[in-house]
Design a protein around this nucleic acid. Structure first.
Length: 119
DNA sequence: CTGATGACTATAG
DNA sequence: CCTATAGCCATCA
């Protein structure tokens, strides 16, 4: 798989994270079909093209902590954006048990399930 | 080719 | 909880 495809898949995956949810770098990588590619997610995010619409703020570390220094502007931007969508961020950390994105569950809730139409 | 890097992560103390 | 450490892996100089 080439670099462009990889970066595109990563961006697409992040765009699928619903508002109010977050995913870890590793989780994004895995869903994008790139096992052990957490660092590549970080790389991709660091190099997002100008004017992208990628909701990068919904990506946090596996423990729920924001990856930036607490005194950086990026930290504050991410924290504020998350709060704006209803995600509670305490001391730079998100409660993953509550906000971790669960793609499979989303499908069950949003996609029409054939089995349910069978009487 | 080689070594350094980093928006990562799991594990041990 | 925090630090250290060792894997990890595409990029870059």
């Amino acid at each position: 798989m080439d670099r462009e495809t990889r970066m595109r898949r990563i961006r697409d995956t992040i765009c699928d994270i619903p508002e109010g949810s977050v995913a870890s770098y590793g989780q994004v990588a895995e869903i994008a079909g790139i096992p052990r590619g957490a660092r590549q997610v970080g790389y991709t995010l660091r190099n997002l093209p100008e004017g992208h619409g990628v909701p990068w703020h919904r990506v946090v570390q596996s423990a729920g902590t924001i990856a930036f220094d607490k005194d950086s502007r990026q930290f504050r931007t991410q924290r504020d954006r998350l709060r704006d969508e209803g995600v509670r961020v305490t001391d730079g950390r998100v409660d993953m048990r509550r906000h971790r994105w669960q793609p499979v569950l989303d499908e069950l809730l949003w996609k029409p399930n054939p089995a349910w139409d069978e009487e």
